[in-house]
């Protein structure tokens, strides 16, 4: 069984994140780049299956600038066996159609039984790339899982919905997306950190994936027209409770017609 875990390097959400107002793209220099936490949860689920099923291979796949290798090494130090890194200057600012094409081609090259992605990244919040990959590869998607069971032939779990959950399954090969209901990831141990440096990482360009630059630019159909930064909120009244604060607050709410 080969499980490929998709990993996105994103700016830390506990830092202030910046948008380049000229391009409408993420300012990658603002904020510490880290593995998106949802991907670490996905990796943890894959590693647990590997813990119980010898012969399982866990591959981490990331598309991103050169420094995304840092996130791949982090995943390798946690226990993944190898990495795939899609790096290409023409992918800077790629939209979801382009991103899903590059990742799909890389998945076909690497081979997979199960692909594990996060339900949405913390920087894009789109949650659409995995579904696009499922469409491109012609494999089932079980999205927004709150738990997952993997067997040799299928994957199943509970999918979050608007009015509750649904029990769903799909035969392999398939792609799943995990939600925050999955457990936090393990920490890398010393041995993991030492061996991560020696684990293989396959670095590939678009040309090596059989995608030419003209195809990328014709596919890139989204455009940011303008981006505006909203002024920061300012603090209002702050009072210490001396026993009358509740009454003062109710008056405030009443004045503002909020009660």
């Amino acid at each position: 069984m080969r499980i490929v875990v998709l990993v996105k390097q994103v700016p830390d959400t506990s830092d202030v994140r910046k948008l380049d107002l000229n391009t409408g793209l993420l300012d990658r220099d603002a904020g510490e780049p880290i593995v998106d936490e949802i991907n670490e949860r996905g990796l943890e689920a894959a590693l647990r299956y590997k813990d119980d099923n010898k012969g399982t291979e866990v591959v981490v796949l990331s598309m991103g600038p050169e420094n995304a290798i840092k996130s791949i090494r982090k995943a390798l130090s946690m226990g993944a066996d190898s990495g795939v890194h899609i790096v290409d200057d023409s992918l800077a600012g790629a939209d979801a159609l382009v991103t899903s094409l590059a990742i799909s081609k890389a998945l076909e090259r690497t081979g997979y039984d199960l692909v594990v992605a996060g339900n949405e990244s913390t920087d894009g919040n789109g949650g659409i790339v995995p579904a696009m990959i499922s469409e491109r590869l012609g494999i089932p998607l079980l999205g927004f899982l709150v738990n997952m069971e993997i067997t040799e032939a299928q994957v199943s779990g509970e999918r979050q919905g608007d009015d509750g959950t649904a029990n769903v399954h799909a035969g392999l090969p398939a792609i799943v997306t995990v939600t925050e209901r999955f457990d936090y990831a393990r920490f890398p141990n010393f041995k993991g950190i030492m061996t991560a440096k020696r684990k293989p990482v396959d670095t590939v360009t678009l040309a090596e994936l059989g995608v030419d630059a003209a195809e990328v630019s014709s596919l890139d159909r989204t455009e940011v027209i303008s981006a505006v930064e909203r002024p920061a909120r300012t603090a209002g009244t702050k009072i210490d409770d001396d026993g009358t604060a509740a009454a003062t607050l109710v008056e405030y709410l009443a004045t503002n017609r909020l009660v």
């Binding site: 579904a131 469409e135 491109r136 998607l141 999205g143 989204t222």
Partner: peptide, 24 residues
């Protein structure tokens, strides 16, 4: 809708029709 089912349907449709998706 940018719901669970909605965005997956939007994404799959966009690949079919070669359309750009504007999210959320």
């Amino acid at each position: 809708s940018h719901s669970y089912d909605g965005r997956e349907a939007a994404a799959r449709l966009a690949v079919r029709t070669g359309s750009g998706v504007l999210v959320d």
